Structures are given as C-alpha cells and as structure tokens.
Computed example of a mutant assay.
Amino acid sequence: MNNSDLQLSSLPEIASLSVQRVLSVRHWNEHLFSFTITRPASLRFRSGEFVMIGLAVEGRPLLRAYSIASPAWAEELEFLSIKVPDGPLTSQLQAIAPGDPIYLGKKPTGTLVLDTLLPGRRLFLLGTGTGLAPFLSLARDPEVYDRFGQILLTHGVRRVSDLAFRDMLEGALAGDPLVGDQALLQFRYQPTVTREEFPTRGRIGDLARDGRLFAKLAGPAQFCSETDRVMLCGSMAFNRDMANMLREQGFAEGSNAQPGHFAIERAFVD
C-alpha cells in the first residue's frame, strides 16, 4: 500500500459520499485557489452543476456546495475556492496537497445548465469572484457552441490577481480538445476590475448599462429577450441586482422544469 492509499483510507466511509484524491493545487493569490481531484467513473453531471465536497473535521464530514469548474467530459474534477482564515471548511481546505483525501458527493445538481434556458443567439455568462467556476465548465462544453452563435464570459473581481484562469480565457480556450476551433470564432472573454487599474474597470451592471458589456459581440448594445440568454453567478447582491435589471427588460427566470431567458444558481441565493 502506498502513501496515497494510506491517506485515502484515513477518511471515514459515508454512504452518500465517495473518497477521492487531490491531484493538483494552484494558489492564485493569498485568498484564492483552485484544485483538481480524481473523478469516479460513476459520476455523471451536466456542465454548470455543483456538488458537495469536504473534509473530515473533528472526525465528522464537513461539506459545502462547490460548482464544478471542469466540463462534463473531463477525466478530472476541478474546483475554485476562496480562502477564509476562520472558515470551518476553507481554513483547512486551503492547506490540501496532492495525494490528500477529500470527500465528494454522489449527486451533482444545479440550475446553471443549458436545460434551464430557451434557445437563443447570444449567451452571456456573468460572474463575480468564484462565480466564475460553473462558467469555466460551460465554456468548454461543445453543446454550448452548437446552441449559441456567440458566448461572452464576463468575470468581475476587485483586483487583477483575482482573475483566475485569465490566460486560458484570454487565449479563447486555444488548444482545448473539443471546443478550441469553435471558441476562436464564438467565444469572448471580458474581465473587469473594480479596485485597480485595468483596461476594463467597473461593475458588471455598470458595463451593461453603458454598453461596454456588448462591445465584443455583434447585435444590439443592450440585452434583448428575443435573442439573448443570461446566466448569473456571484454575490447575492450581484445576482439580485442583475436579475432585477433583466426582469425590467422582459426576461423571465428559467428552471429545470421550465426554461426561461436567464438562470441563477438558486442553491447559492439567500
């Protein structure tokens, strides 16, 4: 038995959870990191869904919902997380290293999936902070490019160092084995920063109001419920304000039962 086997066996078995192994960890700055873990062959999910992950704390599993950042076809699972010094889970999760064991839920779910949206021409993926995670999954899903002619991912953060995965996204996912060629033509990335100098500054809502949000896409310089579909993932204030803006413009929120013009991950909404 190798070291990884010993570590994996150190977590108590829970029927609703599987025990996986950490494969890699990347610290983007002092309060943001991402990590990959093994994916069990039995796990199926739709790009954009979330799953419960966690660690054993004081002998008991401590779990939180995390959006899966890897696409549904990936052999590994990737997650993006903040670091909270006194957070019950993240204070320990930020210290994980390759080979460490980690709990993974068996039932991914969520509303930031294509099933919640009506057909359209332009897809806006609008997120703040770690709300980028589900959009990293969707942006690498071939079905997204089959269903929409243009995809714009806008990531709003406070500082430039918070722009996780910036190089990959600025490169229009070049080299991606499934969507690389389509992304060059259809995918656009627009980061925006609020507290440091950057080519695009301001909150996403302000970019939508003054037209900058639409500068990289063909079509109207405003949201149009007939052609545009929107996904939102960020702080509660961001989700609420953007949802209100969309409703004022005739957009209806979608769900897995009834597709609409925009979607929010309700699991993370107060």
Score class of each variant (00 low, 15 high):
residue 2 N to G: 15
residue 3 N to V: 12
residue 4 S to F: 00
residue 4 S to G: 00
residue 7 Q to L: 08
residue 10 S to D: 01
residue 14 I to H: 14
residue 15 A to V: 01
residue 18 S to K: 08
residue 19 V to D: 13
residue 21 R to L: 05
residue 26 R to M: 00
residue 26 R to Y: 05
residue 26 R to F: 01
residue 26 R to Q: 11
residue 31 H to I: 08
residue 35 F to R: 06
residue 39 R to M: 04
residue 46 R to W: 13
residue 47 S to M: 02
residue 48 G to L: 05
residue 52 M to I: 00
residue 54 G to P: 06
residue 55 L to W: 01
residue 60 R to T: 08
residue 62 L to S: 08
residue 62 L to I: 02
residue 64 R to M: 12
residue 64 R to D: 10
residue 65 A to P: 04
residue 66 Y to Q: 11
residue 69 A to S: 14
residue 74 A to H: 07
residue 83 K to F: 15
residue 90 T to R: 06
residue 93 L to V: 02
residue 95 A to K: 13
residue 96 I to H: 14
residue 96 I to G: 14
residue 98 P to D: 01
residue 99 G to Q: 07
residue 101 P to K: 04
residue 101 P to M: 14
residue 102 I to Q: 09
residue 104 L to T: 08
residue 104 L to M: 05
residue 109 T to F: 01
residue 109 T to G: 03
residue 114 L to T: 03
residue 116 T to E: 03
residue 116 T to S: 10
residue 123 L to I: 07
residue 123 L to V: 07
residue 125 L to N: 08
residue 128 T to H: 08
residue 144 V to A: 10
residue 145 Y to H: 05
residue 146 D to F: 08
residue 147 R to S: 03
residue 151 I to K: 02
residue 151 I to W: 03
residue 153 L to G: 05
residue 157 V to T: 11
residue 159 R to H: 13
residue 160 V to N: 13
residue 162 D to S: 14
residue 162 D to A: 11
residue 169 L to K: 06
residue 169 L to D: 05
residue 170 E to L: 11
residue 170 E to P: 04
residue 171 G to D: 10
residue 172 A to L: 15
residue 172 A to D: 12
residue 176 D to A: 03
residue 182 Q to G: 00
residue 185 L to N: 03
residue 186 Q to L: 02
residue 186 Q to V: 00
residue 187 F to G: 01
residue 189 Y to S: 01
residue 193 V to R: 11
residue 197 E to H: 14
residue 199 P to A: 02
residue 201 R to M: 12
residue 201 R to I: 00
residue 202 G to V: 01
residue 204 I to D: 09
residue 204 I to H: 08
residue 208 A to C: 02
residue 214 F to W: 04
residue 217 L to V: 03
residue 218 A to G: 14
residue 225 S to P: 09
residue 230 V to F: 06
residue 230 V to W: 05
residue 233 C to L: 11
residue 234 G to N: 08
residue 235 S to K: 01
residue 239 N to D: 15
residue 241 D to A: 15
residue 241 D to S: 15
residue 242 M to S: 10
residue 243 A to D: 09
residue 245 M to T: 00
residue 247 R to Q: 15
residue 248 E to F: 00
residue 251 F to L: 10
residue 259 P to M: 02
residue 261 H to W: 13
residue 270 D to F: 14
